[in-house]
């Protein structure tokens, strides 16, 4: 049997897919919540970069992974407050503001990296957490129950967010603000406060995604995300603004990337074919967006619309 048809190959590929999908999933879930409240944030990549750097720097200085994760989350939350100020208080156009946030995160992470660290130095990474008994199930155990803590956390957040969005008052408010903020406002619910919560949460998740990425890599480098934040925004559309859909999109994107990587390292695709398959994840995203656009999955009606009472 060819190597690429073996169970071991499948285990390695799926484990790789989960590892690759984790930062996308964390960032895109946060962005999905923000978009459900009507706020588009194109600055996710910049927040991931600055959150990632702060996590890296913290771990480098303290050798404490948990503190690094906290640093990433706090950095994202602070950037979220800034973004909320710009978009909610000043009603700035969200697309432009998001790009500004991205450039700020990109530039500031590079500046701080050069000033505070300089030469990239390794930090320790998350070790995998084997779930007792379950991880011992042949093949399936390795695929599902032998991942880093961040991967488990990301996947567990999917049902949590699903419940919050669909079964709680806060979730109802978030969805209503994203569909018809004027109506929500007339009922006495604060649109600004609801959006503030989602923006801070979404950016904190982006910061966490950056932290998860650099700690998994064990190193930081300028522009280490390489545009992951923009893919995360696309995955929100792919997932039709639902946590489960975002999970499916992230895993699919990670799986395609992992399969391509596995095929290339196994020598199954070479030369021009290898370059062609490298495009597969991006092509898949574009196709998915076209499909989404054709199916009945409308975006939140108030997405990108600043709310000004009386206007």
């Amino acid at each position: 049997m060819n190597d690429w048809l073996t169970a071991t190959f499948a285990v390695v590929t799926i484990a790789s897919a989960v590892r690759l999908a984790t930062p996308y999933l964390l960032a895109s879930m946060g962005e999905a919540v923000g978009q459900r409240s009507g706020v588009l944030n194109l600055g996710v990549d910049g927040v991931m970069l600055l959150g990632g750097f702060m996590a890296y720097w913290t771990v480098l200085e303290t050798k404490n992974l948990l503190l690094g994760v906290v640093a990433g989350i706090v950095t994202g939350a602070v950037l979220g407050l800034i973004y909320a100020t710009v978009t909610i208080v000043f009603h700035a156009e969200q697309g432009i503001s998001g790009i500004g946030l991205y450039l700020f995160g990109l530039g500031m992470s590079e500046l701080l990296f050069q000033e505070q660290v300089g030469t990239p130095l390794p930090i320790k990474s998350f070790s995998t957490v084997r779930i007792p008994l379950l991880a011992d199930i042949p093949k399936i155990g390795e695929v599902l129950f032998d991942h880093s803590l961040m991967a488990y956390a990301a996947i567990l957040l999917v049902p949590v967010l699903t419940v919050v969005l669909n079964k709680t008052t806060l979730g109802l408010n978030i969805r209503a603000v994203g569909e018809n903020p004027e109506a929500v406002d007339s009922l006495g619910v604060s649109v600004a406060r609801t959006r503030l919560i989602t923006i801070v949460f979404g950016n904190a998740m982006a910061g966490l995604a950056g932290a998860a990425l650099v700690i998994e890599l064990g190193i930081f480098q300028n522009n280490v995300t390489n545009g992951m934040g923009f893919i995360a925004v696309a995955l929100v559309y792919f997932g039709a603004w639902r946590p489960a859909g975002v999970l499916a999109g992230s895993l699919l994107y990670g799986l395609v990337t992992a399969i391509v990587t596995q095929w290339k390292t196994a020598g199954l695709v070479t030369g021009a074919a290898a370059s062609f398959t490298s495009m597969a994840p991006a092509v898949l995203t574009v196709i998915a967006l076209v499909v989404i656009a054709r199916r009945n999955a409308p975006q939140p009606s108030a997405l990108t619309h600043p709310f000004v009472r009386g206007h």
């Binding site: 710009v86 000043f90 700035a92 156009e93 432009i96 946030l101 700020f104 990109l106």
Partner: peptide
């Protein structure tokens, strides 16, 4: 003002 703030932030970061 918001746009100015954004550009100021960008300017600070991407000097």
């Amino acid at each position: 003002l918001a746009l100015l703030l954004v550009f100021a932030l960008v300017g600070a970061a991407c000097g």
